[in-house]
Computed example of a mutant assay.
Amino acid sequence: MKIAFFAPHKHIHHEVPSGDLMIGKSLHDFLKSQGHELMVASKMKLRNILISPLKWPALYLEYKKTLKRTAEFKPDLWLTYHSYYKSPDLLGPSISAKLGIPYMIYQGVYSTKHRRDPKTWLGFMANKKALLQADHVFANKEIDHKNLSRIILPEKLTRTSPGINPDLFKFCKKSRIEMRKKLALNGSPTIMTTAMLRGGVKEKSINDLINAFSIVLKKTPNAKLIIAGDGDARERLTLLANKISPDHIIFLGKINRLELFKYYSSANIFAYPGINEALGMVYLEAQSSGLPVVAYSTRGPCEAVKQDETGLLSPEGDISTLAKNMLILLNDKSKRHRMGDRGSLHIQEKFNSNLNMGRVEAKIRQVISRRTF
């Protein structure tokens, strides 16, 4: 198949990493690995463009260029990754109709609360139009599937899940020994977290984690917290960490994703509160690596983690319970290992990207065959 691929929120070769970017890239790369020819139809970022009239002429020019580019490519399908009210697909629906090819959306999102706000109404309506025009929509979160089922026929809507390649995130005994020696963790119960250290909810999550860790230290004075990631909030978070215990909180900086399994392997548990987290790929990586998870019971962690089976979740903002859950797992080796084993199996069964993307590919083939029959 020849596929015109478009990500209106952030193109897949964007330099700033994120969970959304990883999901989009994994979809693109999987389809390519199966022998399909993919063309990134446009790299234009459409986030908030409908409330930025000065950008509309550039959007029109990009539409004309993309139409020409796509027509020359002669695709069998237009596939859009992640269309929602802030970044609705303003190119795919029209271009697909002009070229007479199927139009599909992976990770469609529909939320009616945005139709009542004048600032988001245009984006809401444009996104709704794209969803209704789509030959098929994939929803990779339960809340999205529920909302989309209000406007999309069952035969045009598939509930799927994002995922990771579990082979890239496995516990490695050799790496555990090497990393614990390198980071001076030997003999220390170790909590790991990883996130982009940027202002906003990411910073607030790490801030809550550090404050919860200060409670852990009172009961487990030799515990360590290792933090992978970098960003504009790192300096502020370092100042907070230094007030609590600079010798027990280690900032690792930005770690290559392919090297993260070594750091997961060095830890005993994974903790990241996950305020306003849509899913949290780090929860998948940590569980795949055999680590039980501690987080808030917000939407993302609830989607990724099985409460009391692969991790312990607590109400958002409840720092004392967050700390309590970390202590439970640090002090109960049997429970920790049992949850870690279940976590690895959970990822293999539900969040294995090879299996999940294979189902998406099969549905794409089915839809194309129906349109061309």
Rank of each mutant, 00 (worst) to 15 (best):
V16S: 08
L31K: 08
A41R: 03
S369Y: 08
A362L: 07
F171C: 05
T120K: 04
I319H: 11
F138E: 06
Q287L: 09
G92I: 01
S111W: 05
Y84G: 01
K218C: 05
T220E: 14
A362G: 08
T80C: 04
D230Q: 14
G100D: 12
G100L: 15
L61P: 01
L99W: 04
R115K: 15
R115E: 15
E178L: 13
F171K: 09
K173G: 10
P246T: 11
P246W: 05
G231M: 12
K182N: 11
E285I: 04
C172V: 01
W56I: 11
N222G: 03
E178V: 07
L148H: 06
E37H: 10
H248M: 06
L258S: 09
S320W: 05
P102K: 07
P102R: 07
N268D: 15
S214P: 05
H28R: 04
L284N: 02
V367F: 07
D341R: 08
S205N: 09
Y110K: 11
I177S: 05
K202Y: 15
M339P: 00
K113W: 13
G300H: 03
H136P: 05
P315D: 11
C302I: 13
S175T: 07
S344Y: 00
S288F: 07
K32M: 09
D247H: 13
P154T: 07
M357T: 04
R159D: 07
D20W: 12
L59H: 08
T194P: 00
L185R: 02
